[in-house]
Write a protein that binds this DNA or RNA. Structure first.
Length: 116
DNA sequence: CCCTTGACTATCT
DNA sequence: GAGATAGCCAAGG
């Protein structure tokens, strides 16, 4: 089957639009779940082509950092949108939802890891 | 064709 | 843990 950008885009948009508020997913995960493994790099392209509203900001790197250059407009916008949904950041990295058990008191109270 | 470029990832040093 | 390296794959020059 030849690569169809139309079908690829549709699959990606579908997957991204299903990410629930306050949750995030990596580019690789989106690509894989959409049925296109190893197409992480293409996910951003597909999202850029989407004309309707899409929760693009819920897609981040596999290492829990944002894909845009830190300090850039896009980075700030994405971070604000995520924080508005309750996503917390520590050291520029998104805090996984169920990691509370692994965090010490200082980090829970102040959002600052002890080892700095 | 060959080469470069990414909103990427995994695996070394 | 920060770099370097090597895969990855579609687009565009």
């Amino acid at each position: 089957m030849p690569y169809s950008q139309v079908k690829f885009d549709a699959a990606i948009w579908e997957t991204v639009s299903n990410i629930k508020s306050g949750r995030v997913m990596s580019y690789g995960q989106v690509a894989r779940i959409a049925g296109y493994p190893r197409h992480a790099r293409m996910v951003s392209k597909a999202m850029g082509r989407c004309q309707t509203a899409l929760p693009w900001y819920r897609v981040i790197r596999s290492n829990f950092t944002l894909a845009f250059k830190e300090g850039s407009n896009a980075y700030i916008k994405q971070r604000q949108l995520l924080e508005k949904e309750g996503v917390r950041f520590v050291n520029g990295k998104v805090v996984p939802l169920d990691s509370d058990a692994n965090k010490d008191l200082d980090e829970l109270l102040w959002g600052v890891p002890d080892h700095l």
